[in-house]
Amino acid sequence: MEKTDTKNRLLVELKQVTKAYAPKKRWFVRSSQPVLALNSIDLGIEHGEVFGLVGQSGSGKTTTGRLLAKLESPTAGEIYFDKTPISQLKGVRLKAYRSRVQMIFQDPYQSLNPHLSIAETVLEPLMVQGIGTRDTRMEKVVHTLDLVGLSPGEAFCHRYPHQLSGGQRQRVAIARAIVLEPQFIVADEPTSMLDATIAIQLFKLLQEIKETFGMTFLFITHNLAAARYMCDRIAVIHEGHIVEVNTAENIIRHPEHPYTKKLIKVQPGFKYGR
């Protein structure tokens, strides 16, 4: 693939993005240095790919996801979505952006409002975006619940989060993220709170969703093996810097940066193979 070709097909592009967390200002106390969560990173995510962002806690991987979901704004640099800079988006245009970019959060026990039924949770994006009528919305919700493996969808509509298992909750969160059929989904460690057998089912579900809708994913994880399983390309992030970007296969087979090599070396595996 030609370099110019890929450039045109970029859906998301981060240019020199820096995010600093300033220490709280206090009287009579000399303020300490701001903490750089992201240090001038460049990143491009192509249309239709699953892009993995792998790093340890505190590496800045979650911050990157939150910037893209516009939960936070960069201190410097610019993020382009479909060639449009997003930092100045406000009002109607921000709302439109939100309908195109959704996020799946890490902890399914925290990401669902305990007071809302499953239907109300999945309905919310449709309602705030003003899509459809009352009936078509409900139809859409049931259909989406079926799609994420909570079938029959009608049976789950009137349940509450506390009646569901962790895996089922995360499916509800996925349903909420895809109900608007966004172009881009940020998945921030969607399975790190779940058991391995549940996690693998969710990975399969995300892959099916990607096949069905052709969405682009940013898959944030600390688990290199999971990233390799899910992603087309992987970026390794370390202390606010992107240290290496390559295809999933190449990054495991031919790591170049010493940090990537180290990560691969310490990945737990079975000594005795299978």
Binding site: G149, G167, A196, T197, A199, I200, Q201, F203, K204, N223, L224, A225, A226, R228, Y229, I252, I264, Q267, P268, G269, F270, K271, Y272, G273, R274
Partner: peptide, 30 residues
């Protein structure tokens, strides 16, 4: 790990993602 006999152990090992067994991944049913 080399010859798991119980179906649950097999499920558990089959769904474990490690860097070298991607092809053997079996997705268990819900």
């Amino acid at each position: 790990f080399k010859s798991p006999r119980h179906p649950y152990t097999q499920t558990l090992l089959g769904s474990y993602l490690s860097l070298d067994n991607l092809k053997d991944i079996k997705v268990p049913d819900m």
